[in-house]
Design a binder for these strands. Structure first.
Ligand SMILES: NC(=O)c1ccc[n+]([C@@H]2O[C@H](COP(=O)([O-])OP(=O)(O)OC[C@H]3O[C@@H](n4cnc5c(N)ncnc54)[C@H](O)[C@@H]3O)[C@@H](O)[C@H]2O)c1
Ligand SMILES: NC(=O)c1ccc[n+]([C@@H]2O[C@H](COP(=O)([O-])OP(=O)(O)OC[C@H]3O[C@@H](n4cnc5c(N)ncnc54)[C@H](O)[C@@H]3O)[C@@H](O)[C@H]2O)c1
Lengths: 244, 244
DNA sequence: CGGAGTTTGTGACCGCGAGAACAAACTCGC
DNA sequence: GCGAGTTTGTTCTCGCGGTCACAAACTCCG
């Protein structure tokens, strides 16, 4: 990506933990953090990379390498201090304080998200629910009043919101994305099955149910074809098995 | 991800489309299928790789390479026939017929999923809703009666269900996974923030809201740090957009 | 104090995937 | 019929990410 030649003065030198964490590692840090929280709840004060790796469902070497990008927070021969490592990961992710979040589109899914408690317990705070439908406005969902879409800019500015969740129909997703980006949002979590185009500097992550299911379906088809093929004969047959 | 017993099917032909599709490609095929469906709805009969790629939000070379794994379904100098390619992708994924699906845990999220119409329009059919809570049982959600968890095995067997959706609290997720695998489910879409361990041959995909948000938060932290840093030295201020 | 045991951090290696570039193949106009 | 233009399918290259293996560093115990 952008290899910045200009070294910052405050860097600690050879092993600056604030630069260049691979994207794959970033995606796993939350998993580690959750596993650590679970250990802490069971009053476990320290753990080895092996234990933490199994709790997180990854390879222990991968876990150690991931953690090494943050710095050397473990002790050789001992392991990692759970609380200390938790804090370091939370700090690296940036969830030591809560991020304000808005949800746009308070339908089936939006209401479920608004009611989701795990949201607030992991570094996020829902500050506003927005919907275009007049019959939704003023209704109370999860202790928050549903606001008209026109309030968007004011809310984002007032609450310093930088993260927005889109749960409107796919046809409206791009319009909503344009609007919230214009209002100042720079990170979007998109639940609508639509490809969003956003200006550079804005991050988009998508959660797409149908895609996940179709990936499962693909593997299921494979399994079915494989077992049918194995059952048929040892001979190489061109199995075009779409079995109902 | 999940260790699947990959049987060593011998490559019969030089270009057998039924073998060895890379996982990254499999994950994109549903996106292409959706883009094609969108084109078909606008009565567009054929398209070039460039058009389809922009509609799907990917590089055109990547799209062509992905499609080449399925076979040579395009025409050089012309492009792809929308309907024909749609069918070929759907056939490859295995969604030419509907897959029966069960949802376990009919709380906030489970009800939203049950009510989600996009489910059924993309190759899946919800055949049963299961919940352990007695006050849920018998209630009607999205036109389906909520069934007791004890009915699991009978339903899975009767309807030949191989895909299950888990939307129960994290603490119950592993138990539910064990139960549905025992009942015959071989593919799981897990919404609970828990690491599931399943026997080989069973695929698990997870959808984890908190993780997605935390990844966004990480990049937001970076942006904030970067702009604060750029405030000192006037540098190239264009942030890098990581859209995934 | 020193050796044995343990566990981290990291260097080396390999395979997958992304992207660019190009030859093959097709259509269209003349 | 044929050349020009267009678009696919494929090859090549390169970098990221996953895994192995091992030296470094720490604890414990005699
Ligand atoms: N329900 C699910 O389980 C589920 C699962 C996966 C994906 N999705 C996707 O999430 C999105 C929402 O699904 P849903 O089931 O909640 O739909 P829904 O129709 O129940 O809710 C959509 C809400 O968005 C509001 N809305 C529409 N246009 C808007 C606009 N321009 N600005 C602001 N608000 C607007 C509507 O008033 C409505 O309240 C859809 O794109 C759907 O495909 C839903
Ligand atoms: N609500 C959301 O937007 C959201 C978002 C992301 C993830 N999640 C996750 O999805 C899961 C469900 O969330 P929710 O908000 O719907 O919770 P919920 O408490 O509203 O619903 C959970 C349901 O599961 C049922 N249940 C509990 N144990 C069960 C068991 N052993 N067998 C069968 N059913 C059982 C309960 O009776 C309840 O109806 C949680 O793990 C949550 O973390 C929810």
């Amino acid at each position: 990506m952008t290899a910045r030649s200009t070294n910052t003065g405050e860097g600690s030198g050879a092993h600056d933990p604030h630069r260049d964490i691979p994207e794959a590692t970033v995606a796993r840090l939350p998993v580690y953090l959750r596993a650590l929280t679970s250990l802490a709840e069971r009053s476990i004060a320290s753990c080895s990379s092996e234990e933490l790796a199994t709790a997180a469902g990854v390879n222990s070497a991968k876990l150690r390498k991931d953690l090494s990008y943050l710095g050397s927070y473990g002790t050789r021969g001992v392991g990692y201090d759970v609380d200390y490592l938790s804090y370091q990961i939370a700090r690296e992710i940036g969830v030591t304080h809560d991020w304000p979040v808005i949800i746009v589109g308070i339908g089936n899914l939006g209401q479920a998200l608004a009611n989701f408690s795990g949201f607030s317990s992991r570094g996020f705070r829902t500050v506003a629910l927005l919907d275009a439908a007049t019959q939704m406005q003023g209704q109370e969902v999860a202790g928050l009043e549903v606001r008209p879409f026109a309030d968007l800019a004011r809310i984002v500015a007032a609450e310093q919101v930088s993260i927005g969740v889109i749960s409107v129909p796919a046809t409206a997703a791009q319009d909503v994305a344009d609007a919230i980006v214009a209002a100042g949002i720079t990170s979007i979590l998109n639940f609508a099955p639509a490809v969003l185009s956003v200006p550079p500097g804005v991050d988009v992550r998508k959660v797409d149910l149908s895609i996940e299911l179709q990936i499962l379906a693909y593997h299921e088809s494979r399994k079915a074809a494989e077992s049918a093929e194995a059952a048929a004969t040892v001979d190489n047959g061109s199995g075009e098995g779409i079995t109902a």
